[in-house]
Design a protein around this nucleic acid. Structure first.
Lengths: 109, 109
DNA sequence: CAGGATCCAAAAGGATACTG
DNA sequence: CAGTATCCTTTTGGATCCTG
């Protein structure tokens, strides 16, 4: 519940799940997520790392620093739960036909 | 996320799912949940009702008032998500053998 | 680029007392 | 019994500026 209850967490996980390139940079996430402040983003990333859903890889050999975040196995597995929640929402709350496609163009899950 | 993110919500849903008698009274829930204050419990119940996961039946014919809460179909369906989350937790976080029984004696799911 | 530090506003939750 | 009302503390999140 610490994971799922907090703002931005789900969006971060989904962002790391989307697209071809699975590793995302700090500022890349920041941009994609719209208006997360660096403080909050940094907090969420730390928590997710602590809980083992994501990992961080830092390349400190070159400057400027380059750090990349990516989903772990448990993180990928957690995406399934997010998908279940979405299905529940589609079934009982929002009857949005567009979202029922294999890969929803709106939320990419 | 409004549903799942807030304190006590999950516990309320599980409480309404447990046991033979599926309808639970306000003070019954309050007692079972330990130390929820009536204010918070009342807030959560309202939200859950508004979101359609539970329903309320009031018997105003007799005094003192008697109100009963119970899960709707979508509420019951949501229990499955809670179970998925629990499974995820068991798999990746807490390897608690006792919880893997068909009906866990600790959390009743 | 990847954050950390500081300060502030808002939301959430809890304690307690009271009421139809 | 089933809540409301009031007040207060804690937790979050956001804004903004700064740095190695």
């Amino acid at each position: 519940m610490n994971i799922i209850g907090k703002r931005w967490t789900i969006h971060i996980l989904l962002e790391l799940y989307k697209g071809e390139k699975k590793e995302k940079r700090f500022n890349e996430l920041k941009r994609k997520l719209g208006d997360v402040t660096p403080k909050v983003l940094s907090e969420r990333l730390e928590e997710l790392e602590k809980d083992g859903l994501i990992e961080k890889r830092v390349d400190s050999s070159i400057l400027p620093l380059k750090s990349e975040y990516f989903l772990t196995e448990s993180g990928k597995d957690f995406i399934k739960i997010i998908q279940e929640i979405k299905k529940w929402g589609l079934k009982w709350k929002f009857q949005k036909k567009e979202c029922e496609k294999a890969l929803c163009m709106y939320c990419d899950i």
